[in-house]
Simulated assay, not measured.
Amino acid sequence: MSVRAALLALLVLLLPTGCQAAQMAYGDVNGDGSLDIKDVGWALRAALKLVDLSPEAYHAADVAPLRSPYSFGDGTVDVSDVMRILRRMLGLEPDPWPARLTYFPLDPGNMWIYTDTQGNSVLATVEGLADVDGQPAYEVRLSTGESYYLRQDEQPQDPETPLVLRLLRRVDSNGVASTYIPPIDLLRYPATPGRTWEGQVTIPAGVFTMSGTYTTTIVGEETVTTPAGQFDAIKVHTSLSATAFGISIHLVLEYHYAPWFGWADLNATDLANGPLTSTSANVHQVAYP
């Protein structure tokens, strides 16, 4: 019997049931909440190109190689992933084992390099956890001197929005901090096309305090090509209006977010005062530890 025939026979014995479209843990390929022989079977079928997994299931199966103590995967499902899931099922793969997919890749050490329309490069690095008024948040530091503090919140009690990426604070290159009260919901999962949410926010920044509103809409799903590669991404549109001391600010942000990767591009436009100004950037390179 050939190796392929033996593998096919094993697949028949495993008889995996259908994959569920839900947020899944690494290794839980069929999304039923446990890691067992059925997940090994689904991973093996994917490695042999016998089945097309959903994006969530594919990333749940992509568990090799180890990228950092709390994240792994290389974008491909092959025999190394099958063996790692099997080892985990048998208790041979030690902790730490990530409990969930890193839909928002905030692992410390992750880096992205963006290039704007003028050819300038900006490096963004996840520095690690920081404290923002008693709340933990990941600091994403830019080579321009700015820092953004983000947090991924799980909401298991809310089946419509089990996962949210929130912006808690921005610190500009001069060290002036703007804290968003409450935090701004940058992206809600699942990011279903047509989904819209609104929010009110107060922004203390030094001696100034601004108040405003924002509206975010998931425009749709698009394939985006950048110098770093091609990504299946979600197009997001956000409109932010704020006032302070009679001064109005109206910003429009449009970007493509690639799940499990990050921002593929960003376009920001200031519509408020004077001539129209805009900036844009495309991801040029990515590096994971």
Rank of each mutant, 00 (worst) to 15 (best):
V122N: 12
L101Q: 05
G128Y: 05
G119K: 08
Q118Y: 10
A99Q: 08
A99F: 04
M111F: 08
N110G: 06
P98G: 03
I113F: 14
L106C: 01
G128A: 07
W112T: 05
V122Q: 15
A130Y: 15
E93S: 03
L123P: 13
W97Q: 01
W97S: 01
L106G: 03
L101E: 02
L123M: 15
F104I: 00
Y114N: 06
E127Y: 09
N110M: 02
A130L: 14
T125Q: 13
L129F: 10
D95G: 04
G109P: 05
G128W: 07
A124I: 04
I113K: 15
L101A: 03
V126G: 07
I113Q: 13
I113P: 13
P96V: 00
P98W: 00
P108G: 03
A124G: 08
A99W: 03
T125I: 12
Y103Q: 09
M111Y: 10
A99V: 05
A130T: 15
P98D: 02
G128E: 07
D116G: 09
A130D: 15
L101M: 05
L129H: 10
N110I: 00
D95Y: 02
T115H: 09
L123Y: 15
A130G: 14
L129M: 14
T117C: 07
P105A: 03
E93Y: 00
A99M: 09
V122K: 12
P105H: 04
G128L: 07
W112P: 04
G109V: 02
T117R: 11
V122Y: 13
N120C: 10
R100W: 06
W112M: 07
G109W: 04
W112Q: 08
L129G: 08
T115K: 13
Y103R: 11
N120F: 12
D107H: 06
P96W: 00
P96K: 01
N110T: 07
T125W: 11
V126I: 12
L106M: 00
G119I: 07
D95E: 10
A130E: 15
G119E: 11
I113L: 15
P94R: 03
I113G: 10
P98Y: 01
D95K: 00
L129C: 11
A99E: 06
L123K: 15
Y103D: 11
L92S: 03
L123Q: 15
D116P: 10
D116Y: 09
N120S: 14
S121M: 14
P96H: 01
V126L: 06
I113N: 13
D95Q: 05
M111L: 13
P108R: 04
F104D: 02
L106W: 04
G109Y: 04
I113M: 14
V122M: 14
V126H: 08
A124P: 06
A99T: 08
V126A: 12
V122I: 12
L101F: 01
R100K: 11
L106P: 03
W97A: 01
P108H: 01
T102C: 07
P94G: 04
N120I: 12
S121D: 15
P105K: 05
P96Q: 03
G119P: 10
L129Q: 14
W112H: 06
P98N: 02
Q118N: 13
R100E: 06
W112Y: 09
A99K: 08
G128R: 08
Y114V: 03
G119C: 10
